[in-house]
Structures are given as C-alpha cells and as structure tokens.
C-alpha cells in the first residue's frame, strides 16, 4: 500500500523539489543582483572599467544591431504592405512599422542580439575566471569579485541596451521606408507623416523601460551563470563553462520574452 502511495506521489515530490530549487535559484539571482547593484556605488567609482564594458557590449554591437534592425524593418515593411493593401490601408504602413519596432521588436530583438553576442561571452569569461581560480585570487587580494567583474557589466548593459534599442528603432524605420517607399511605391510623405502622428512619447518611453529592464536581466543572469560555474552539478572545468554559457543564453532569452509580456501588459 505504502509503495502504491509512494509511486503516486513520486511525480509530485519531484515537481516540488524542482520548484523549490527553481525558487531558490531565483532568490540567489536576486541577492546576487542586489549585491552587484549596491557595489556600483561603492567608492572609488569604476568609471574606466564601466566604459570598457560599454565599448565591448555597446559600441561593438552596433554593426550587428544595424544589420538586424535594417532587415527587420524591411521585412516588416514588406509583410505590412501586403497585409494592409488587402484592406486598402497601405497608407498606415509607417505607423505599423514604427509602433511595432518602438514598442516591441526594438527592445526584444536588441536584447536577443546582445545576449547572443555579449551575454554568452560574459558568462564564458567569468566562468573561466572561476574555474582557473582567478576569482579566488581577486578575493585573496581583498578585491570584491562582484564589484570588480559584475557591477561594471550591469551598468554597461543599463547604458547600452536603451541606446542600442534606439539605434535599432531608427534603422528599422529606415528599413521599412526602403521596402515600403522605395520598392513598393508608397508615398514618402504619407509614410513619415503617419509615423509622426501615431507615435507618442509613451510608446518611446515604454520601449526604453523595456530595454532598461532587459539590460538588467541579461547582465545579471549571464554574470550569475558564469560566477557560479563551479556550483553546477555534473559540470566541471571546460564542460562546466559550456553548460554555464548555454544556460545563460537560454535562461536570459526566455526571461526576456516572459518579462516582455508582463511589462507590455502593464504599459498598455
């Protein structure tokens, strides 16, 4: 009888364990984030280290953001035109492209692109530092590893994400213009006028809030995964770093999409 009861409850037990582990992990990430945020303001401020990270995460991502933004805008223009033309309202193409980009696609696509480019490298770099005892070495020198490694990256992401999102939005609108106006023959004035009349400040600030939150999420998750590489069950050394990098990319991408939905529902 006891065996039957056990087998019935076994899946629930497992589910319970997984849930507790998940909640525990979220708590650990939150503490890690609060710690890193608090250390941003400890003196002396790490301006040069932060600028280096802004250069790596932000400036070096511009090209990829330009490319992705351009083609996203172009494909939006193309798809939007053929959908809108069925209803005879191709004139609102400018508004459709601009609103989709500014409210949704700009922050999300930018976050996903930076996760792929910089998030993975953050996790890998910090992970390698962990397994080669470089983080322990910082600790022995009385240099707080979270302040030294994580805080500048979080600040850099907070600065870079909204800026890159803005670039993405602008270049996306230009992409939409290229396909809508130059290729499909919509009137240039109508395209731009629709953008001007439909986009309000709330759309822009909503997009920036999203970019700001995504920046925090991506930096925290990627640094956390790298920082605790050695705590991963079953993954040691190089394998541990590879698992940490994979988790960092997957988890932060999923969280970006989940948080995007939550934020959108609040912002609308």
């Amino acid at each position: 009888m006891a065996q039957v009861t056990n087998s019935i409850f076994a899946p629930f037990n497992r589910l319970g364990k997984v849930s507790i582990a998940f909640i525990g992990e979220l708590g650990a990430i939150a503490i890690f984030f609060i710690h890193a945020i608090a250390l941003i303001f400890s003196l002396p401020l790490q301006v040069s280290k932060t600028m280096q990270q802004v250069f790596f995460i932000g400036a070096k991502s511009i090209l990829i953001i330009l490319l992705v933004g351009l083609f996203t805008g172009m494909v939006l223009g193309l798809q939007g035109y053929y959908t809108l033309v069925k209803f005879g309202s191709e004139g609102v193409l400018g508004a459709a492209v601009a609103l989709s980009l500014i409210r949704e696609l700009g922050p999300v696509m930018t976050a996903l692109m930076i996760i792929a480019r910089a998030g993975s490298s953050m996790a890998a770099e910090i992970g390698i530092m962990r397994i080669s005892e470089q983080i322990d070495a910082l600790d022995t020198m009385d240099i707080n590893p979270i302040r030294f490694l994580v805080s500048p990256r979080i600040v850099a992401c907070i600065i870079s994400f909204p800026l890159l999102t803005a670039i993405f939005d602008v270049i996306g609108i230009i992409g939409g213009y290229l396909s809508g106006v130059c290729l499909l023959g919509i009137n240039s004035g109508i395209y731009l006028n629709r953008i001007e009349t439909s986009v309000v400040m709330q759309d822009v600030s909503g997009g920036f809030i999203k970019a700001f939150v995504f920046g925090i999420i991506v930096a925290t998750i990627c640094c956390y995964q790298g920082y605790f590489t050695h705590m991963r069950p079953g993954g040691f050394g190089a394998k541990g770093v590879s698992l940490a990098t994979t988790s960092a990319v997957v988890l932060s991408s999923v969280l970006v999409l989940v948080v995007d939905y939550v934020l959108t529902s609040f912002l609308l």
Binding site: I128, M129, S132, E133, Q134, D136, A137, T140, M141, D142
Partner: peptide
C-alpha cells in the same frame, strides 16, 4: 577582516594569473 586581508597575500599553486 579588511585589515586582515590587506596584510595577507596568496600565491596559488596554478598561479591564477588574470589571463586577459
């Protein structure tokens, strides 16, 4: 603790140099 850490230094077996 801070003063203790400032007085102490450690040379690691695998050097633990910052590779970047």
């Amino acid at each position: 603790q801070k003063s203790f850490k400032q007085q102490i230094s450690y040379m690691f077996q695998n050097n633990a140099l910052f590779d970047s």
